[in-house]
């Protein structure tokens, strides 16, 4: 199996506080790694380190067998894109959807100037937003729709790795489901490699191929999904899994579609 991303011995310290403690993990090409952990476990810090938003104090990150240095080239930055948790803050409130989607297209010369409009519409279609949304502003969309626009923006630069940091946590359950379906569809269509962060084990189960568990800045488990959910390796994973509230079992067949 080909490796898309390799994280080796990465550490981040803030003063005396260790946010990431010697993290090593690999992401396989075209697979989804689900990253689980409670608040303060360092999962968002790891995402930001991989995305190049935080410079680690130690360790190295390799993308497609190319080391990512402290100062990344534009081409390297393009390769890794990120979706954030808060749909209210992920889009610049003063920019129209057209500006949001076309900026990186123009800057990185991904398509000709004449093709920009067409490409923006294609991007919107990919995330199931009407074309008429192009000239609207972020506040005119619902949380789920904004998250879709953020996904379209990330896809505009044709990344090879997509990091999603709790992209559905702020959404209602029904909207969450449809956004997750979109992620699943895009993963198939575009052959994306994904790092999907969530504290919600149901979400992780839905989308991941592999599951990594973090606690207090350390990686405590890394296993294939089925193994993790049926028979986790670490004590902490077991604790997490048994703490999840579960729906009552259906009494009659067909009563519940869980």
């Amino acid at each position: 199996m080909e490796l898309a991303l390799q994280v080796k011995n990465v550490s981040v310290h803030y003063g005396g506080f260790t946010a990431l403690d010697d993290i090593s993990l690999d992401l396989q090409q075209h697979k989804v790694l689900g990253l689980v952990g409670e608040s303060g476990s360092g999962k968002s810090t790891l995402a930001r380190v991989i995305a190049g938003l935080i410079t680690p104090d130690g360790g190295e990150i390799t993308l497609n067998s190319q080391p990512l240095l402290k100062k990344r080239s534009r081409a390297q930055r393009k390769q890794i894109q990120m979706i954030f948790q808060n749909p209210d803050a992920s889009l610049n409130p003063k920019h129209s959807v057209r500006q949001i989607l076309s900026e990186a297209l123009l800057f990185h010369r991904i398509v000709d100037r004449a093709q920009v409009e067409k490409r923006c519409k294609e991007l919107l279609a990919k995330v199931h937003i009407e074309e008429s949304g192009l000239d609207r502003f972020p506040h005119e969309f619902s949380g789920g729709q904004r998250q879709r626009i953020a996904i379209a923006r990330a896809l505009s630069v044709e990344p090879s790795l997509l990091i999603a940091d709790e992209p559905t946590s702020a959404l209602d359950v029904s909207v969450q489901r449809s956004v997750l379906e979109l992620f699943g569809k895009l993963k198939e269509e575009l052959n994306l490699t994904m790092l999907f962060i969530s504290h919600d084990l149901g979400v992780i189960h839905e989308i991941s191929d592999t599951v990594a568990v973090m606690r207090q800045g350390r990686l405590v488990e890394l296993n294939p999904k089925d193994r993790f959910f049926a028979n986790p390796e670490s004590e902490y994973s077991l604790e997490l899994l048994s703490a999840v509230p579960r729906m009552p079992k259906p009494s009659t067949p067909g009563g519940l579609t869980t």
């Binding site: 359950v173 029904s174 969450q176 489901r177 997750l180 919600d200 084990l201 149901g202 979400v203 189960h205 839905e206 959910f229 049926a230 028979n231 986790p232 077991l238 899994l241 048994s242 999840v244 579960r246 729906m247 009552p248 259906p250 009494s251 009659t252 009563g255 519940l256 579609t257 869980t258």
Partner: peptide, 26 residues
Amino acid sequence: LDLLQNPQDPYTQMLINSVLPVPELE
């Protein structure tokens, strides 16, 4: 229990369907 196992309203059914299941531990 009755409501969750035998929902009458389509909206209730939709909410129940939206709950992402976590499989039982072995």
